[in-house]
Design a binder for these strands. Structure first.
Lengths: 216, 216, 216, 216
DNA sequence: CATGAATGAGCATTCATTCAT
DNA sequence: GATGAATGAATGCTCATTCAT
């Protein structure tokens, strides 16, 4: 009586890795939707289609689960950033590409913004406790430094620009707009997420950053 | 049995106002510290030194209290913004002043950032429901428009800059840096809130925005 | 519309003292029956006919509730002990009366034995944390000392008997027999709680203690 | 695929016995520390360094495990009691020796006291269900009867003393003092387990019992 | 013999909210 | 206007126990 003829790792129950991943994905969605305080462990279990007890079996408690979700979210964006290959591009193009990537990634992963918000609300306690915090440092920072340096050498960019400051600025320009889009839309009485508005925002950000860099 | 010998009306109202203000301040701190989901009505009452029941008497429920806190926070920053008198300044100075004000206000009122975060987590539901949302529109937007226009006319600024976009950018540059300071400090392994780091950030932001505006 | 004509403190709802007493009594029974670990807060609320939340409102948590129950149990037995008036009796009669009282009290309040057991299991942590622990010191100890002294002076008792040791012995003789009655009954194959067995035990204890005291 | 090349039977059984013993010892410690209700099967498995499932394999459930622990504890003390050889001693010496043994055994095996407590809390249900309950009857009872009889014949002891009553009394004198030592220490404000206090207690108990027996 | 994965029922505790005065 | 008492519905977490190999 062949009990299991399916390819390994595909449909098996009792697959620890698979269960953990399922839980992480469900938790990410729940935390993104409701924040750390508003998230419900019951709902995470339900979303994952797994027993609530299993969450505690693998992640100990809600806080540690949140930490694991955060680390995964950072790993995900870093993984994508590493594919950018900015060094192969002309410096202005490279900077523009970084801006576009950041903008698009935030648009595609709204949960990332919310997770960041929740993490900040709790004073980054979850990252401070993570031994892997430093690993989350973006590899792009270094690359961006090289891009800026090359742009300067080639007379395209001004000098004296700190890549960390610029990286934070690029992130902030997209982040604030998107994270506050609902609030801002309500206040300004115009939809900041319409296609037209999006295009305008992207243009503005690129103009702002590249205009600054280009200035003598 | 004389229950109350105080003059009717007047003083009662004063007390009522005072209680409401006390509750609002306590709620603002609690929401700022723990977010909407993590805030506890009990703690708000304790902070205010008032009976929990009074909170419901004045604000109906926790959500409405949060909404009131949000509206107050917006009113507060708008009040300060109105004192800036940007139109009396040379355009580049005016823009610099707005950047400095924003930066300093966020530094002085960290609770404002957290409240914004919480509001965003809940998709601005609380503002959308507020009849006064539009009143929260910053008067600075209009003023900034005038400043940009004058700067352009005087050959100091480039043209075609949307004041809303620029206003959002200025806010975002400070906001992301400060809101994420703990996370970023952990990741970069350097204290982003040290006096030196603060000065550098302010310089960078001014350079970025003014460098952009000045570019032909 | 007279809402409440009943005598005060009799049937009123919303009577804090009354509620606390009701909870304490229910808790005492539950703890006595199941021990600290086996007791269920739900069941205590049910026994008390009150909302579970109220238990936490008044007693903070299960441990503190147990502590309150313990203190009450001690206060109760001390109250009874104080009514003994041993000093008015002839020394041998006084000692016999203390033995009889202890025996009867344990028989009438089997929950006292169980509570003591539970407290001991947790290393008297609950008493050690009680500020009133010393108040629980039996007033009988002092009285017993006087009785022993008078008995010695009158040539009825031997000298050099520590009243604390004797008090503990008297308690232990009843306590072990009753606390272990089920175990011992099973082992010896005879009912240790039958009327005849009880009488024999009381005789034995009195003989033992008085025989010892009378010995030259 | 050779699964097992070891000699069949013999060694397997050894392992099985060893595992059971390990579990029993771990369970004894856990039950002694936390009582039946507070004991955790997980912790027992951890203490034993064995998989939780094995516990169920050998002992069916927690209750039956507790019963097994109890039976073992009784067997252990009976084994020691049988080494006393009281009949070879002069009656008063024999009684003193029994008192000393009981006192010392309880001191050396505090877990025995706690296990007894737990068993009593559950009304000896675990023993009543044990087919071996009667086997747990102390062989010392009979011996003590003989000692008392010989002491009486030789004019050293009074007559009419029930060995069961005396045995229970001797146990109770040590048991109550030690089992309640924490509570009593807290109440009396003096350390009942200091070397001096121990010596005094032992003296008192011997005086009490032997004084009683010696009395005409 | 031995084990990691999984679970249903339950548990102490919390929380926003309402009642009665 | 103000407050102490009271509550129903969660909420995070635990536990003894079983499954599948």
């Amino acid at each position: 009586m062949a009990r299991d003829t399916s390819p390994p790792g595909e449909e098996r129950l009792r697959d620890a890795d698979r269960s953990q991943s399922t839980i992480l994905a469900a938790a990410r969605d729940e935390f993104a939707e409701h924040g750390l305080g508003g998230a419900r462990v019951d709902r995470i279990a339900e979303r994952a289609g797994l027993n609530k007890r299993l969450i505690y079996y693998y992640f100990e408690d809600k806080e540690k689960l949140f930490q694991a979700v955060l680390e995964l979210a950072y790993r995900d964006i870093r993984t994508e950033e590493m594919k950018l290959r900015l060094l192969e591009l002309d410096p202005p193009i490279a900077v523009r590409r970084l801006i576009e990537f950041t903008w698009q990634y935030y648009l595609d992963h709204p949960e990332f913004l919310t997770l960041l918000n929740s993490a900040n609300l709790h004073r980054a306690r979850h990252l401070a406790e993570s031994k892997r915090a430093r690993e989350l440092n973006s590899p792009v920072i270094e690359t961006l430094g090289a891009v800026l340096e090359r742009g300067r050498k080639e007379g395209q960019f001004r000098g004296g620009v700190d890549p960390v400051q610029l990286y934070v600025s690029i992130a902030g320009l997209s982040y604030f707009y998107l994270s506050n889009s609902h609030t801002l839309s309500a206040i300004f009485g115009r939809d900041l997420l319409s296609p037209k508005a999006r295009t305008e925002r992207l243009s503005h950000m690129a103009d702002l950053v590249l205009g600054y860099l280009a200035a003598s």
